[in-house]
Amino acid sequence: MLAYTIKRIGLGLLILIGVMFAMYAAVFIVPGNPARAALGPRATQEMIDRLTREMGLDQPYIIQVYNFFANVLTGNLGIDVMSNRPVAAEIWEVLPNTLILCIAGLGWATLLAIPLGCLAVLKRGSWVDRVASLISVGTISLPYYVVAIYALLIFAVKLNWLPAIGDGEDGDIMSQVQALILPAFAIGFTWVGYLARLVRASMLDVMGEPHIRTARAFGVPEWKIVTKYGLRIALIPTLSLLAVSLGGLISSAVFVEVIFSRPGIGKLVTSAVALRNYPVVMGAVLVMTAIYVTLTIAADLLIARLDPRIRDAFRGA
């Protein structure tokens, strides 16, 4: 298990190094000089040359990657070209916001989807199953920027129940929670359908297995068969999906962040891309990749804890 963990972490680090190479390659391929973009149209060639040197953009590709790598190891993600502040500090300011948003969004979706999926299996073929699958397909079909805009229109503008923009007052938990509700609703909406369908499908698989019949033959109560004998196996694929989707959400939450004017890493990256603010883009992409990689490793380890068969397979690995 320990050997497996170390192996997975090593693999994760390799992925991160690969991402660094790819990002610097992208800077070389994409047209436009970051220094010129940063200084604006009235900058002289001298100013541009000086900033290019300062940013290290005149160095060969390998040297640039090496410098970036060495800086990252010391926790330095570079300096924001626009604001002259350290990129690490800027990311650190907005990252918790995004994380809370994504966890809250996926959280409510999961809490709703697991019972919905189980219910559909228990009442398979009945109207309950059909309603559940209608809800699933409905929520999957609606992209979250649409949900976000309509949620904003209905609950913030028309009914005026919840704040429309921002992330709440500093230090005021209640207002922060209120500001979180609509964006989290919009983010989680699509996932209700995905997760419920996945839970339903894997539950159907598991409930058809012979060991479920054994448990029934011994008169184990049906609720216990579902929760203890079925769900524990059925949740394994759901967990992998959750880890990957949380990683993906952190970057794709940007639509919701823009609509609700919430500070977040997605919003940070999009504005940085528009301004060719390369240090910010690279730092943010690296952090998002690191989170993604960490989540997948965490999910794999958690699955190994839940399934003794996988645990034993890793013991040999």
């Binding site: 060991h211 019949r213 448990a215 203890k228 004998y229 524990r232 196996i233 068969r309």
Partner: peptide
């Protein structure tokens, strides 16, 4: 089938 008649994760 004794291979499948017990729950694999318990």
């Amino acid at each position: 089938d004794p291979m499948t008649s017990f729950n694999p994760v318990l």
